[in-house]
Amino acid sequence: MAVIEARGLTYTYPESKKPALVDVDLVVEEGEFVILTGPSGCGKTTLCRCLNGLIPHFYGGELRGELYVAGMNVKEHKTWELAQHVGLVFQNPENQLFSLTVEKDIAFGPENLGLPREEIRNRVDWALDRTGTTPLRYRAPYELSGGQQQRVAIASTLAMKPKVLVLDEPTSFLDPRGAQRIFETVNRLNKELGITIILVEHRLDLASVYADRVIVMNDGRIALDGTPKEVYLSGETEALGVGVVKVVKLYQLLEETGLRLRDVPISPKEASKLLREVLSP
């Protein structure tokens, strides 16, 4: 079942002449793990803002075309209704966390839904557990590392039990290990709970292995859309200002010189396995 359905989505920010999204058609099925990438200013963040209704309800501007998320028409439903189905995690977790303890931050969303006390407690326990942040429960968010803060931000979104989790460059400020832990956390939410993931990311080397699908945007439009292998092998990514992961690059360089591996590797593990086939004595 489609959880996101956009038809002819075109959006222009207030006081802007040029639309930030142009005629976007997109169907995302429930449970998909999608990486959304593209050069700076391509419209990725704008699309994310549409998915939970920040556009048009908060930003204003002109939104044309149709967008349904979790069966709701985004134009007709308020942000607080959409927020129960679509969680948004920002680049900088400091913009999202404001309470004195991690627990209170996570409880904030469910409290605002007016849920019974017991249910709120259960959801907090569950969200802490699922994001590996239980040991941080009574800590103050501002004293945590960037990676811990980002996992708490994910937990606070998760406590709303969303169908879709949208993460807008969640690892920009993290070191590689911190980034990998975020991707692993998100991947578990996807595989174990079936939550649909829209991950805006430049770090394709680390993230690609988890994704079913990669979408590349350019100039407000969807330029490429397919499995990671299809997209990286399209030969069009570099012209769009998007790099391919290093092991795919190696595959391409070898192929140019006459050595064709049996399949396209997405991770170093796959690459070494495929190389072993051709290099073993």
Partner: peptide
């Protein structure tokens, strides 16, 4: 807390 570059990981395996 870094991660080896992908190419380095491949050569380590091999």
């Amino acid at each position: 807390s870094l991660i080896q570059p992908q190419i380095s990981q491949v050569f380590q395996e091999l």
